[in-house]
Design a binder for these strands. Sequence first.
DNA 1: TAGATATTTAGACAAATTTCTAAATATTAT
DNA 2: ATAATATTTAGAAATTTGTCTAAATATCTA
Lengths: 95, 95
Amino acid sequence: MNLLFKALNDQTRRDILEMLREQDMTAGDIADKFDMTKPSISHHLSLLKQANLVVDIRKGQFIYYSLNTTVIDDIVKWFLKFNSNPTENENNQDS
Amino acid sequence: MNLLFKALNDQTRRDILEMLREQDMTAGDIADKFDMTKPSISHHLSLLKQANLVVDIRKGQFIYYSLNTTVIDDIVKWFLKFNSNPTENENNQDS
DNA sequence: TAGATATTTAGACAAATTTCTAAATATTAT
DNA sequence: ATAATATTTAGAAATTTGTCTAAATATCTA
């Protein structure tokens, strides 16, 4: 969970995920969409990869990045815990 | 979204959320659960509050913290985008 | 009012993060 | 082989973050 939340804690990386939702892209094409150097984007892609949010496949000179949505399922599960009452709780302090 | 992901990007803060899922707690009681000073916990609570993930209510000397689950709905919605194929326009948000 | 308790605010500092430039690696084409 | 293109790695600088201690604020009680 740590790497996952860390990867998501950056607007550029979230933007990359949203772009990859539309279609797979090469590292260079991704970098072209941002006002940022290629090494910086490469670093962001590395963090997304560490979190297993994306997968990369080399095709010749190019490296294609694509979403891995199975991790999304895990994180959604983590959040859904908070929407179900743990012990049917109205054990709250009311005035 | 920025404050939200920022708030979630810390194990201590995620632990606090999980504790508040069970029951509302005072700042002091929360701090007692961690090997960390009260000012540090107070800072974490401040970030959770900025993200609107928790709400605080003073009762006398004590300040009670409790979860705000409406924000969870928003973030889950953000994630569920990634589980529906954009080009084929399939909507699987019901669950 | 004074003292005790609960909590936050302020300021400092080390560690982590983001970004850059320069250089390295991998592949393709001439 | 050499050059060109695509991408990553390395190292450095600026910023942000997490934590601490000390001090401030708020409330309760004797």
